[in-house]
């Protein structure tokens, strides 16, 4: 279970001009601006839920994901994930989560994918029998058998994303964070990725937290949507709630989800 209570985070953003001299000077004395990335954010996510985490760029999505995955320490508030505080029990916590950054690969570029997988096995100290089982299952579900012996650099984006998903799941995490997992994929790969995530959630009860701008991803995967804007939670509900809130006529539902979201962003003044 994930519990976020009154989490706030402000960033100091340095302002300075370029160049080595300015860099040295700014090291000693900086000029700052404060940006409120998260403002009293609270939510609870139960085990086995699939949640879409949405918001325009700069709304605080990645700050939230960074806090949940132990990369970032908030200024105030409490967060426990299965009893652990991510930024305090980083090592213990990250054993239990998987993270896929859609735009950044975690596979070694020049060597076959299977070599990266074996390194991950050692990084997470996965029991060999467990590793074999997971690898077999992932290979079958994501159709990786042809890809495992191929160097990452020779994979298409869709093939690579399938490998990335497998790489994040070799250690059987209880929670999976997906950051734009279908960005840039063709239709076939998108469907394969969605299908797989669904199955993972159904069969293993893995909690999935998905950030994306792709409304089709959200409608295909998420039973629940959390909408964030300017660091605040603006809506926490179902897709129908989004449709209703984003409709131009009161009481009606907007069928086109992209339009509903666009209307909603405009109405809330966060776009």
């Amino acid at each position: 279970m994930i519990v976020m209570e009154h989490i706030s985070k402000r960033y100091k953003v340095a302002r300075r001009s370029g160049g080595a001299g300015a860099a040295m000077k700014s090291f000693l004395r900086r000029e700052h601006e404060w940006v409120q990335a998260l403002d009293d954010v609270s939510f609870t996510i139960r085990d086995g839920e699939m949640v879409g985490y949405m918001g325009p760029n700069g709304a605080g999505k990645s700050s939230t994901i960074k806090i949940l995955s132990g990369i970032l320490t908030p200024d105030s508030g409490r967060c426990t994930i299965d009893g652990l505080t991510p930024w305090k029990n980083r090592i213990e916590h990250v054993k239990r989560i998987g993270v896929v950054f859609g735009q950044r690969s975690q596979l070694w570029w020049d060597i076959p994918v299977i070599d990266s997988f074996e390194l991950l096995r050692d990084i997470y100290s996965v029991d060999p029998a467990q590793y074999r089982r997971n690898l077999e299952e992932l290979t079958a579900l994501l159709q990786l058998s042809e890809l495992l012996k191929t160097p990452t650099r020779q994979l298409s984006l869709g093939q690579r994303m399938r490998c990335e998903l497998a790489a994040s799941l070799l250690h059987s995490p209880r929670i999976l964070f997906l950051d734009e997992p279908t960005i840039g994929l063709d239709a076939v790969s998108k469907l394969a990725v969605r299908e797989f995530i669904h199955r993972l959630n159904r069969e293993h009860g893995t909690t999935v937290i998905l950030t994306t701008h792709d409304m089709q991803d959200i409608s295909a995967l998420a039973q629940r949507v959390i909408l964030i804007g300017r660091g605040k939670i603006l809506l926490d509900g179902s897709l129908d709630d989004i449709r209703r809130a984003g409709s131009e006529n009161p009481g009606a539902q907007e069928e086109d989800l992209d339009r509903a979201v666009a209307n909603l962003y405009r109405r809330l003044g966060i776009s």
Partner: peptide, 18 residues
């Protein structure tokens, strides 16, 4: 710059070793 240090932090090993 490439954000790879985030990846280091989401793995259960010392940063220096990685």
């Amino acid at each position: 710059r490439r954000g790879e240090f985030d990846r280091v932090l989401v793995r259960p090993r010392s940063e220096i070793l990685q």
